[in-house]
């Protein structure tokens, strides 16, 4: 239902416009083609393999804790979600 996962950027491939994001132990390569400036350490919202927006660490944590509160597993979501 239009949900996106927050994750932290841990590496960048500027040439390919991709980033590796992390959430807990899960790592995933995503496209950063829709964002202007992304830096290592930024939090981004990931939806079907694309980073949609940047968000603050506090916003990211708040969203993740709400998802966990709903009994969901955001790490698994990021791992199983689509690639760009």
């Amino acid at each position: 239902m239009c949900l996106a996962m927050p994750a932290q950027v841990v590496s960048l491939d500027v040439q390919r416009e991709t980033a590796t994001v992390a959430l807990g132990p899960v790592r995933k390569e995503i496209s950063i083609a829709l964002l202007e400036e992304v830096a290592i350490g930024d939090y981004v919202l990931v939806h079907v393999g694309f980073a949609l927006h940047k968000l603050s660490p506090e916003e990211a944590e708040r969203t993740l804790s709400m998802m966990r509160e709903a009994g969901e597993n955001p790490e698994r979501e990021l791992a199983e979600g689509d690639r760009p």
């Binding site: 239009c2 949900l3 996106a4 916003e59 969203t63 709400m66």
Partner: peptide, 10 residues
């Protein structure tokens, strides 16, 4: 406050 945080695509 919660809804736009969770449903961030639309």
């Amino acid at each position: 406050r919660l809804v736009p945080t969770l449903f961030s695509v639309c």
